Every structure is written in structure tokens, then in C-alpha cells.
Simulated scan of single mutants.
Amino acid sequence: MQSRLTMTIAATCILFSVSGLAHDDAYWIQRNPDYTSAIGQHCCGPKDCFRISPDLVYEDGNVITYLPTQQKFRRGTRGTYLSETDDWWICEARRYPGFSYPPAICLFHPFHSQ
């Protein structure tokens, strides 16, 4: 009886921890292996991608500049994707000491942007 109770508790904990991961805001990026950076790495893990304000990007035709780092992304190329939530999203690489912002590795743009 004791082992049955232990197994039930363990199964419940696993179920809740998996469902918690699935409801992360960036779950749709994490679950899609096709979302890769320009060099082929997956765009993000659980804490690497987040929504950004439209004020942090500048659009010039098919080129989108992420203003905090001055990185340029081109629509239709690997690393630049249409957002599934109709928000702007950025996926960052590791933070480095001395830099205000870590480099972005992927950018997701809303449908209604230029």
C-alpha cells in the first residue's frame, strides 16, 4: 500500500511539472525544432525567449534591427520567424559581463508588422 501511494504521488508530481513547462509563455518556440538561429542552433530554452516592446525594433523593408544590440535580422531567413502570438519576441544567447544586453539569436515578428 505504501509503495502504491508513493507511486501515485510521484506520478502526480511529474504530471504537474511537465504541464508547468508546457504553459511557459515561450512554449511554442521551445516545442518547434524548426525554429533555429542563423547558425542552426535551436532558438531557445525555457528562460531565453520573451516578448519585447515594438519600440525595441526598427523595420526597414525586410530588415529588422533589434535596437538594444543593433543586430539586423532579415525576414524569410533562418533566425527570423513569424510570431505565433502576434507579439514581438526575442531569444537571447548567454549574458556576458560588461555588455548591457546579450546578443539575440532569433527574432519573431508579428504578422501585422511591415
Rank of each mutant, 00 (worst) to 15 (best):
D60A: 12
P46S: 02
H42Q: 10
I64P: 02
W88S: 00
L56G: 12
C44K: 08
E84S: 09
Q114D: 08
I105E: 11
Q70R: 10
P68T: 00
I52A: 12
V57C: 14
Q41V: 07
W89N: 01
P46N: 05
R78F: 12
C91R: 08
F99V: 04
G98Y: 11
R51C: 10
H112Q: 03
F73W: 13
N62G: 12
R51Y: 06
T36L: 12
S37D: 01
A93P: 03
G40D: 07
D86K: 04
F73C: 07
V57W: 07
E59S: 05
T36F: 08
L56F: 14
D86S: 12
C91L: 03
S83I: 04
D48G: 06
R95L: 06
L107E: 05
E92G: 11
P103Y: 05
K72S: 12
I105W: 07
D48M: 10
T69R: 10
Q41G: 09
Y58P: 02
S100Q: 14
R78W: 02
R95G: 13
R75S: 13
E59P: 00
G79P: 03
K47N: 15
I64Q: 03
L82Y: 07
F50G: 04
Y81P: 00
I105Y: 13
D86Y: 04
G76R: 05
D87S: 11
G40V: 13
V57P: 09
P103N: 10
E92F: 14
Q71R: 04
Q70F: 15
N62R: 05
F108K: 09
G61N: 11
E92A: 07
D87C: 14
H112T: 05
E84L: 05
R94A: 08
H42A: 06
G61A: 13
Y96N: 01
P103M: 00
Q114M: 12
G61P: 15
F50E: 09
D48L: 03
Q114R: 14
K47Q: 11
L107S: 08
A93G: 14
P68G: 03
D48H: 03
I64Y: 07
P97G: 00
Y66I: 00
D60L: 04
Y96I: 01
E59Q: 09
D86H: 06
N62Q: 10
R74F: 11
Q41E: 15
Q71A: 09
D86F: 13
P103D: 11
I90P: 14
Y58Q: 05
T36N: 09
F108C: 04
P110M: 01
R51M: 15
F111E: 14
P103S: 06
A38C: 03
K72W: 05
P97M: 01
F99D: 11
S100P: 15
Q41K: 15
T36A: 15
I90K: 06
I39D: 14
A104L: 06
F50C: 05
Y66S: 00
C91N: 02
G98L: 04
Q70M: 14
T65Y: 04
P68H: 00
V57E: 05
N62T: 10
D87Q: 01
R78M: 08
G98Q: 08
T80M: 12
